[in-house]
Nucleic acid binder design. Structure first.
Lengths: 196, 196
DNA sequence: TAGCGATTGTACTGATTGGTACAGTGGAAC
DNA sequence: GTTCCACTGTACCAATCAGTACAATCGCTA
């Protein structure tokens, strides 16, 4: 869709602006016009690069996943219990940075977009990708003998994700990370129960 | 606002219609006009009972809390570990009913409304009320000597709520209750760790 | 330099949005 | 039966929405 450096730059500016606005105001609360005003682009550019608003949202979902994973690099190198702890600390540090609202951009979308047949599968897929990195790490631990052979990495990863999301949801509402800190500590303790 | 039986009936019809539509389409995705069409009411009625759309949403949030609590009556009578198990079963049974989407109406709102200064506190308060019933039950258990004296009921209740919400969020996206079943089982196991 | 496709600016549209204006109607109290 | 107020029906409004039309421009290639 963007076959020129200049075009790519414009497209990126639109997606960035949309990602920022939708993080705060939600999808329906973010109009195309606002996105274009914030990005400095014009309407013809928006509809040159995206067929419609849903496709813009799809690009935003991809962007969110990239941002999320970039903020927790430890998830790519999980090979020990210490690495898992590092990972949870990175998860918390993102939201400890002042100014950033406590919320998972994907989690915010999950409720609003949950029944849109075009977008819900994309959010689901983003979560699965995120979760798969965690599951891969748990497989590594199991292969190294640090996790019981009978443990199910996929299922444990899903359980950890529920803690991350539930913790973030309550922390978001309460403007207080405590809920997430506890949720992650409990999740980690649960995983440690599967040490051989 | 509604001082007559007829008026109350109309107001309830509007709130019911709004609650149903917003559960599926979200707040921003549900226009006042759609609510009125679904409820059979006219615009003058809507703005007779509600100052604006936000106040309608506030009433919907109250309605959601009522519905949620009505679906888990065990939460009012928690006095044993068996009662806690019953409670989690009730939570699951709600979403096992065919036709009903797997989602917490409050959780759906949390992301979308999370930064609206008028509505976010209401969602937060609804969660606190919900959680307070659980905390009260845990106090009862502690007083009966079934929970360690050092356990913090409020904190444990918050931890359980994060499991409920995280589990529901993933179960919603995946149209599969497994995530929630696991999350609740883990939460219950965690609580049992505080048996004296 | 001529051409070509990628890119962009401006103006516009029809539908929908939340909200208002205002003239009514209902039914109960006096 | 009249008075009063809660309640209702219909028509309307300005703003905003997503999306379109179309002509102009940019930079590269031949």
């Amino acid at each position: 869709m963007a076959s020129t450096p200049r075009g790519k730059q414009t497209r990126d500016a639109i997606v960035d602006a949309a990602a920022g606005l939708m993080y705060v105001d939600g999808v329906a609360g973010t109009s195309v016009d606002k996105v274009l005003a914030a990005s400095g682009a014009g309407k013809s550019q928006m509809y040159h690069y995206f067929k419609n608003k849903d496709q813009l949202v799809a690009a935003v979902i991809d962007r969110y996943l990239e941002q999320i994973l970039a903020n927790q690099p430890a998830i790519f190198e999980l090979a020990s219990w210490a690495d898992l702890e590092t990972w949870t600390e990175q998860l918390l540090d993102v939201h400890r940075r002042a100014g950033s609202p406590i919320a998972c951009p994907l989690g915010n979308l999950a409720g609003e977009v949950g029944d849109n047949p075009k977008l819900a599968p994309l959010v689901d897929q983003a979560y699965r990708t995120w979760e798969s990195h965690l599951a891969r790490g748990l497989v590594t631990l199991r292969d190294k003998g640090e996790l019981a052979p009978g443990a199910d990495p996929a299922r444990l990863a899903q359980a950890a994700m529920t803690s991350v999301q539930g913790g973030l949801l309550l922390a978001h509402l309460r403007h207080d990370l405590t809920a997430m800190e506890d949720a992650l500590a409990i999740a980690l303790a649960y995983l440690r129960g599967f040490k051989p």
